[in-house]
Design a binder for these strands. Structure first.
Lengths: 164, 164
DNA sequence: TATTGTTATACTCTATAACTATA
DNA sequence: TATAGTTATAGAGTATAACAATA
């Protein structure tokens, strides 16, 4: 809870954020920042940032995907993916592979070490989420994900309807 | 939905993000980015970023709060608040006021124009949220906020228990 | 002409650290 | 000594734009 000191400076009283709390987006931001901060700490032990972690997992699950596809999946620009993939490749977690049919693109694959590394990181992240969400039952967690996905999909619908 | 082109390049097939979807944090990030992007667009029409908007609303709701209190409420450093408050003050939305008892601090207050401006922005943001969350019933929205707050509070508990 | 990956560059946001004036 | 606000600086993360190679 956010707090401020009172005039006597002897105790803390909470800052009033009632108006902001009335906006769903504010509640999302606050809780997202909360878990992001903790996740960065966990991933930091592995020398990973959030995006690099996502990239590695996506490459493991989508062998031979291209950098452009990765950029789209991560919602970042291709130029940013270059640096990201450079780093993962330098650490021998993934490899850029020539594609016979198209000499412009690379097929990205995780190395064996990359897959094993991913497994270790995922296990740690999973364990951390269990702690982080200890106040929620499994049902509540499932409901939360369901509602978050509705928000995500709902916006897609709004966007595409606007384009018509 | 994130998609990639198949080999024939005639249609799009989705990128597999099943592993990441198994993590609550990933679902939160995706949906947060979704609404953040849209919110930035709405606030941009008013020349506001997310943090500046939050700051203005907090100052309206907490008259005479100090910059340090604002920094804590926004979870950013005091040095960042200076620039934030500079901007809002230059636009005559808020004012820095001398405090009789303590010459180090400023009491921040919204101007009349600031309060009216806030009302207009809030109305626009509220209307936008209604569109953004159109796939959710009021009950579902309430449940979402409730669960998000559990996540936020749950983490507080974890943090404080660690400090013991 | 369009696309992939690349490079160089710039911008936004925020943190860190040192400073001043007050307490 | 400690705190509020300020300033200067640096860093992370990302976008933009131009480019070469290839389709």
């Amino acid at each position: 809870m956010v707090r401020k000191r009172n005039k006597a400076n002897t105790e803390t009283i909470p800052v009033n954020d009632k108006t902001l709390r009335g906006l769903v987006g504010y509640n999302m931001k606050r809780s997202y920042i909360t878990i992001q901060t903790d996740m960065l700490k966990v991933l930091g032990e592995f020398g990973l940032r959030l995006t690099a972690f996502s990239a590695l997992v996506l490459i493991v699950d989508n062998p031979d995907m291209t950098q452009s596809q990765l950029a789209a999946a991560l919602s970042i620009e291709r130029s940013g993916v270059v640096l990201l993939v450079d780093d993962l490749e330098n650490r021998d977690l993934i490899s850029r592979n020539k594609v016979p049919g198209d000499r412009r693109t690379y097929a990205l694959r995780a190395t064996l070490a990359g897959m094993q590394f991913r497994d270790r990181v995922i296990a740690k992240v999973q364990a951390h989420e269990d702690r982080l969400f200890h106040k929620l039952t499994d049902d509540q967690k499932a409901t939360l994900v369901e509602l978050l996905n509705l928000v995500e999909q709902g916006n897609d619908a709004v966007s595409s309807s606007r384009k018509r």
